[in-house]
């Protein structure tokens, strides 16, 4: 485990060092941006509507029973912006994009494509890792903004049309506007940026250390997704602690 952590820190450092080459690698970054957006937008939309809906449902019934229904928009707004959108979108991206990254790089490793790059004096970190980490770090925060908006809409829908809650769109969004502040959304974006770096590094690293044949690739993909999710949830707690103190 400590070896993996050490290798990932080294990979992060090498990725940072390769950032000046970002313009040269822009075509690969754009390819990855398209890949990530294309593969995850619809899923992000569906996930966000239902996350917003279930939060509104769970908290709405409780709040309305206690005569606090007017706070529902704020509760749903903050929960989605600060926690649910960044965490759920990161888990989605780890499962959908991170797994594909680990599989692609892992298969390149197994079939000696990475060795071939090295013999041509092409650094695999510049060629494979940096474009992917940059693309995921740009896309995930954008996806989180989208997920926040769709999640709020999903919450408002459930609040309006569920007969036990029955809070109008206007009342929901008035509460949301009064409660949610800029730093709530900003914190969500900061978290998602850091989660994106975690996903990119963990998945690329797992790909690069793949050994064996197809079974090795499968093992790497599983480890990449599981490790990403575990690290996201651990990092989420500590980031929340730090961001609360800053606010």
């Amino acid at each position: 485990m400590f070896q993996n952590i050490g290798e990932m820190v080294l990979l992060l450092w090498r990725t940072i060092q390769s950032l000046p080459l970002i313009w040269r690698q822009r075509a690969k970054v754009f390819d990855q941006l398209f890949e990530i957006g294309n593969a995850s937008l619809l899923m992000a939309c569906i996930l966000s509507v239902f996350i917003g809906g279930v939060i509104a449902l769970q908290t709405g019934v409780l709040l309305v029973d206690r005569g606090l229904g007017s706070f529902l928009g704020g509760v749903v707004g903050v929960a989605i912006a600060q926690e649910l959108a960044p965490v759920m979108m990161s888990i989605l991206i780890a499962g959908r994009i991170g797994s594909a990254m680990a599989a692609e790089i892992g298969s390149m490793r197994v079939y000696q494509e990475i060795d071939a790059l090295r013999t041509m004096n092409i650094n695999p970190v510049h060629y494979l890792v940096m474009p992917r980490v940059v693309a995921i770090a740009l896309t995930l925060p954008m996806l989180v903004i989208f997920a926040i908006l769709v999640g709020w809409f999903g919450g408002a829908m459930v609040a309006a049309y569920n007969k036990h809650i029955a809070i109008s769109f206007q009342a929901f969004f008035n509460s949301l506007r009064d409660t949610v502040e800029f730093h709530d959304v900003r914190n969500g974006l900061v978290k998602s940026f850091i989660f994106a770096i975690i996903i990119g590094l963990v998945c690329c690293h797992q790909g690069l250390v793949t050994i064996g044949g197809p079974r090795g690739i499968g093992r790497s993909v599983t480890k990449a997704v599981v490790n990403s999710i575990v690290l996201i949830l651990i990092a989420n707690y500590f980031l929340t602690r730090v961001l609360i103190n800053i606010d």
Binding site: E104, S107, M108, Y111, Q112, E113, D115, A116, L117, T119, M120
Partner: peptide, 13 residues
């Protein structure tokens, strides 16, 4: 330097 790998090791993408 260059190396011709046994499998070719072409980049499949």
């Amino acid at each position: 330097m260059a190396m011709v790998f046994q499998s070719g090791a072409l980049l499949n993408s």
